[in-house]
């Protein structure tokens, strides 16, 4: 039987450049700025403000996971697993929220 496992070699490793990392950071800082500005000055958004804050936070999380955590360049398996966990957690919150909304 042939040894089909690649234990030691990282086949075609993608090395992110320093410049990419800077770009990612800038994106994240920009998003942070936006979310703070909306929160501090956008008080009239009311209920929308939490939704916006969470939406921006989620975009930030995706950026971190995709670039810093290397999901973009890793095997697709990791992305699928992350999605699975996200769906699962979303289902927990939605089911629980449904319960409390209908009390």
């Amino acid at each position: 039987m042939e040894n089909t496992n690649h234990h030691n070699q990282h086949d075609e490793v993608h090395i992110s450049s320093y410049r990419d990392h800077w770009r990612t950071l800038l994106t994240l800082l920009l998003l942070t700025l936006v979310t703070i500005v909306i929160s501090v000055f956008g008080a009239n958004l009311k209920a929308l403000s939490v939704a916006t804050a969470l939406l921006i936070a989620t975009v930030k999380v995706v950026v971190v996971a995709y670039y810093f955590m290397h999901l973009k360049y890793d095997k697709k398996l990791y992305t699928w697993l992350v999605l699975l966990v996200a769906i699962l957690f979303a289902a927990f919150t939605i089911l629980t929220a449904t319960e409390y909304f209908n009390r």
Binding site: L88, A91, F92, L95, T98, E99, Y100, F101, N102, R103
Partner: peptide, 18 residues
Amino acid sequence: GYFIWGHHMFTSGMSGTA
């Protein structure tokens, strides 16, 4: 199996919809 935990709580005062 992850989404059916509520059936332990039918008599707990949980909402009817849930």
